[in-house]
């Protein structure tokens, strides 16, 4: 496989995954804030700031009054803003385009449909009453794409590279969502006991990661900071957890680099090392300093990405 095309496939996976997380974040935060239990969580400005924080464009000036429609448009359909959903889908399709000869017709057709759906979504409707429709469709379509990736591609290096993109991005997005919600929880603390630990934002966080129901099943309790973070970071059976993403990344790098020989310079070695580190972590360690933990994991993921680029995509 061409190095450039491998890079395109990797980023196709990442952009597909990214658009889903942004869409779900918009959806969940917006709608759960409408009837949130405390004033802060209900506050429009609070929610909008949280959304901008997630896409990496926090508005630093706390005194500025954000306009809801502007923020939603900027994150959803604004072709001028690089992080918008529409641009993510566009990039996903562009990357798919240049690797079109390697992916299945079915997968390409679905990406193409997805692109046309987003491209043709009327912005006035999106802003008026289409937020739910739009974002849930985006989430739905990315689920279809994941199905097509799994179901119509040969599980060889093409598949492995896409899945690495998907999983590295997923780990990235989950950690970013955790980071955002952690910040939110600091601001919107619960009303009893450990106010931070019982913030409503932990429920929102789980919903953003489509993990709320499973978490309730697993712990059978109202989510707290510690149980939520444990579930989303360390539980290897939670499909959205960091641990699971790292396991997937590891599984797929072994398809690309099946060598068993010890090579400390290889991407596979680095992934294995990062994975082992989190495999044997416990949540209390993490809770001691969440901020540092978040920075560490973002750095590790970035390092993996760079190493991959150097080893496989260098063209």
């Amino acid at each position: 496989m061409l190095a450039r095309v491998a890079n395109n496939l990797f980023w196709m996976g990442r952009y597909i995954e990214r658009s889903e997380h942004i869409a779900r974040y918009l959806n969940v935060n917006y709608f759960s804030s409408l009837d949130a239990p405390n004033a802060k969580s209900q506050d429009r400005q609070f929610v909008l700031r949280s959304m901008l924080f997630l896409v990496g464009e926090p508005d630093v000036d706390e005194n500025v009054i954000l306009k809801e429609q502007e923020v939603l448009f900027k994150i959803g359909l604004d072709t001028e803003s690089p992080f918008s959903i529409i641009n993510n889908v566009k990039y996903a399709r562009e990357n798919a385009n240049s690797a079109r000869d390697l992916i299945s017709t079915e997968l390409y057709e679905s990406i193409n449909k997805f692109y046309h759906f987003v491209l043709n979504y009327p912005s006035d409707i999106f802003l008026k009453n289409g937020l739910h429709d739009f974002t849930s469709n985006v989430a739905e379509m990315t689920a279809i794409l994941r199905g097509k990736i799994r179901g119509t591609l040969l599980h060889d290096s093409v598949y492995a590279i896409i899945m690495m993109g998907v999983n590295i991005e997923r780990a990235n997005q989950i950690i970013r969502i955790i980071n955002t919600k952690y910040n939110d929880a600091l601001k919107a603390q619960g009303s009893y006991g450990d106010k931070f630990g019982n913030s409503f934002e932990w429920t929102t966080l789980l919903k953003c990661a489509e993990s709320y129901d499973m978490m309730r099943r697993f712990y059978k309790k109202t989510p707290t900071s510690i149980s939520t973070l444990e579930f989303l970071i360390l539980n290897p059976n939670c499909p959205r957890s960091i641990m699971n993403s790292l396991n997937q990344v590891y599984k797929n790098i072994k398809i690309l680099d099946p060598s068993m020989a010890y090579n400390k310079k290889s991407t596979a070695f680095l992934i294995g090392k990062v994975r082992a580190e989190y495999q044997y972590k416990y949540i209390e360690e993490i809770e001691e300093n969440i901020q540092i933990f978040i920075e560490d994991i973002l750095n590790s993921l970035n390092e993996i990405s760079l190493k991959m680029e150097k080893e496989f995509f260098n063209y």
Partner: peptide
């Protein structure tokens, strides 16, 4: 076969 661009 591979579809290449000049830079490949």
């Amino acid at each position: 076969v591979e579809l290449v661009e000049g830079r490949d």
